[in-house]
């Protein structure tokens, strides 16, 4: 059983390593995520954020802009995740009345 699990992990690892060899190498400037436009003509989010973040919000830190404006619902979800974790710990461990 333990041998089987080791084999499973080794297979997974080698498949993943084989897969990443087909990816753009580290630091590639022409990777799809770094282009200006996707093959079907829609704007790629990363380049748009870099070019328009300051004029849209007057905030120099692009990460803060993407965090709290362009993708604010992800951040809302993040805050709710914190809240959900707090409620879970509260529910599991805290006792109101002895």
């Amino acid at each position: 059983m333990k041998l089987l699990q080791f084999l499973l992990l080794a297979t997974l690892g080698s498949i993943l390593c084989y897969t990443v060899l087909d990816m753009p190498p580290r630091g590639e400037i022409d990777a799809p995520a770094s282009r200006m436009e996707s093959p079907v003509g829609t704007p790629v989010a990363g380049a748009y954020y870099i070019q328009h973040a300051y004029e849209d919000t007057h905030t120099p830190n692009m990460v803060a802009v993407v965090l709290a404006d362009y993708r604010s619902v992800d951040t809302f979800g993040e805050v709710v995740v914190v809240f959900a974790g707090v409620m879970t710990c509260f529910f599991v461990l805290r006792r109101r009345r002895p």
């Binding site: 995520a33 770094s34 870099i50 965090l67």
Partner: peptide
């Protein structure tokens, strides 16, 4: 935009 890192994955 090649002069700045992509901010999307960081966020």
């Amino acid at each position: 935009p090649d002069l700045y890192l992509n901010p999307l994955p960081h966020t």
